[in-house]
Design a protein around this nucleic acid. Structure first.
Lengths: 144, 144
DNA sequence: AATTTTACTTGCAAATTGCAAGTGTAAAAT
DNA sequence: ATTTTACACTTGCAATTTGCAAGTAAAATT
């Protein structure tokens, strides 16, 4: 029997609306940020985020992200109690969205801290920055 | 007395988290999409979106977007019952976020429809596409 | 064998969203 | 000039979603 994993109903065929139905909740992009930029991989690590996500919400969001093929869950060979969560190529392709959101907030609020670091700069070569980060993530997440 | 406009509490200083606290709800980017790509300006026009936003939610989101200086409300000189909503420069700078989100969904779900159109293509000159759209919006929204 | 660690689930309270009906003011019609 | 309509909301309540605290199950450690 399916449990109370709230599946957001599709509102329209518009790409933005559909994207928001998939990752437009309060927590999904926070989880993806941690997978992308902090090296966190397990449930417990993800739960220890600065924003204090509730354990049931984390579980429901991970299930939803996995159902939408944005992340992939894989048993940890070193400890079979735990699973590790990896980004899929679809998940990695959210990098530009997250970088743009991060940059927008930093630009308009000086106390906001950015967490991505790179050799390339946003100002000089924005698309190069996306690609550099995505390449690193492909090496860390897809090759396993 | 302040009414029940739910102000999302700040969760952390992370730029992504703060951006989500500002525009990361279910409706804000839908409203901004309509201001950007459909020419809608009034309350009634915004309410007639395909996704059927509830009237109280629209009111609360418009107030929140205005408080955060993402949109600006201005009396319609032609009809003083109504106000018109315009993007600010800060709001216009969300164009890359929306374009990337739209493109991401379209790429991974063929039935998603994109609403932005431009002379430049996403594949050939992504940053040029952002700039073209932002320039058009500056002409429509800031010069008034 | 007992304890701890890890990853959840469960039940209930609080907050948010959604719906339907109502209010106030300005414009338009009669 | 008075009534009617249009527009932009507000209000009350129901439904859904999120948040908190405690509990469970299975593998790892002692």
């Amino acid at each position: 029997m399916k449990k109370n994993i709230p599946v957001l109903a599709k509102r329209s065929d518009c790409a933005i609306s559909m994207a928001l139905d998939t990752v437009g909740d309060k927590w999904s992009l926070i989880i993806l940020r941690d997978l992308m930029f902090t090296g966190k991989r397990s449930y417990g690590e993800l739960q220890s985020c600065e924003e204090k996500i509730a354990t049931n919400i984390l579980a429901s969001r991970l299930t939803h992200l996995e159902e939408n093929k944005i992340i992939r869950k894989q048993l940890d060979p070193a400890d079979s109690r735990r699973s590790l969560y990896y980004l899929t190529e679809k998940g990695i392709q959210l990098v530009p969205v997250i970088i743009e959101l991060m940059h927008w907030m930093s630009k308009h609020n000086p106390e906001a801290s950015e967490c991505a670091s790179s050799a390339k700069s946003y100002e000089q070569d924005r698309v190069g920055l996306y690609e550099e980060i995505m390449e690193r993530l492909r090496a860390e997440h897809l090759a396993i």
